[in-house]
């Protein structure tokens, strides 16, 4: 039953490849966007803190 499902009627590589690739690209996009946001937020905070001191 499960092996039938994984087998995908002989199209396993194509179907799982497509879904896997899509999941990977969507995740990389999300993680990359979040990381960029965090970096810039940290940068802005440092800058504001430095400005307050002077």
């Amino acid at each position: 039953m499960l092996s039938d499902f994984l087998h995908m009627g002989g199209y396993a590589g194509y179907v799982w490849g497509s879904f896997g690739l899509t999941a990977a690209v969507l995740l990389i996009n999300l993680v990359g966007a979040k990381r960029q946001f965090k970096q810039r937020l940290a940068f802005v905070r440092r800058r504001m803190a430095a400005e307050d001191k002077t």
């Binding site: 995908m8 009627g9 002989g10 199209y11 194509y14 179907v15 497509s18 879904f19």
Partner: peptide, 16 residues
């Protein structure tokens, strides 16, 4: 259900 012509291969449309 699997497509009668393309079998399980048609499931790629769900991401394509």
């Amino acid at each position: 259900p699997a497509d009668y012509q393309q079998g399980d291969g048609f499931r790629i449309i769900y991401v394509h």
